[in-house]
């Protein structure tokens, strides 16, 4: 690759206390496409994802070595500005966590923090991003109502819109549909496919069919190591490694 990728990882090791959670991770995440991280529970999928935007920092006893380069800049470097790094990445968590404020303020939260746009600009922003996730028609009458009054599926879309409103380049999803019903899941999946034109997307999932439906590339992680990385079809239909083969067939879970 000639161009610097959005996310590049070099010799990343993560330890918490005595346990070695991630071992010598080296990978370049392909730009403007969806990459899924798959693997059995507790293998380090979520840890890998969270290492991208330094959400591991606050865990007691954590020790991180190696580099994660975002747009060529080492986010674990001495002069890295953690809030700017996180601004570049939207996070969609396992369950929706609307901030304890109105629907409008949830979207406006990020833009307000990163500068004080005028009321008019904010109104336009809120409308734009709610439309982007297809929520506008459903909530435009109650923008100033509490965000927790929405259904779980709507809340998750609100969280996505909230993340998009800070204009990230990357979207990180941590099993973002695991709390949702099938219809809401479908809506989120469709949105992800739509969004990859503009964003680099990394998803953690334990549902192979979902990985197959939405992703272009797959990373298979096992016991804190990357076993295999490649285009979706190749990993799922024709894996090279024995472990990947066993996992894909459902022997390891």
């Amino acid at each position: 690759m000639t161009q610097t990728p959005h996310i590049g990882v070099k010799n990343l090791n993560v330890r918490i206390g005595d346990s070695h959670l991630l071992k010598d991770i080296n990978i370049n995440i392909p730009d403007k496409s969806v990459t899924s991280i798959i693997g059995p529970s507790g293998c380090g999928k979520t840890t890998l994802l969270k290492s991208f935007n330094r959400l591991l920092d606050d865990i007691p006893g954590v020790n991180i070595t190696g580099n994660v380069l975002v747009d060529g800049e080492d986010i674990y470097g001495k002069h890295a500005d953690v809030t700017q790094i996180r601004k570049k990445m939207g996070l969609l968590a396992q369950r929706p966590f609307p901030l304890p404020m109105s629907i409008y303020d949830n979207i406006a939260y990020g833009p307000r923090i990163h500068g004080a746009p005028s009321k008019k600009e904010l109104n336009a922003l809120v409308e734009h991003y709610l439309k982007a996730v297809g929520l506008w028609e459903e909530v435009k009458g109650r923008l100033h109502g509490s965000a927790s009054s929405l259904s779980i599926g709507q809340q998750q879309r609100l969280c996505l819109a909230r993340g998009l409103a800070v204009e990230p380049e990357i979207i990180l999803g941590d099993e973002s549909t695991s709390a949702l019903d099938p219809i809401s899941t479908k809506i989120i999946e469709d949105l992800i496919i739509q969004l990859k034109e503009k964003y680099t997307i990394v998803l953690v999932t334990h549902i192979l069919r979902q990985a197959r439906r939405v992703s272009d590339y797959i990373i298979f992680v096992y016991m804190g190591e990357i076993i295999e990385f490649g285009p979706t079809e190749e990993i799922l239909l024709n894996p090279k490694e024995k472990l990947t083969k066993e996992y894909v067939k459902g022997f390891i879970s």
Partner: peptide, 27 residues
């Protein structure tokens, strides 16, 4: 207060103090 609520605010690029002031104290 769930850890994920803090992460939600942090991942939007808020500083820790902004997260405390605008999200955690409110909750």
């Amino acid at each position: 207060i769930p850890k994920e609520l803090r992460e939600a605010s942090l991942s939007l690029g808020a500083t820790k103090w902004e997260t405390v002031k605008k999200v955690i104290l409110r909750k």
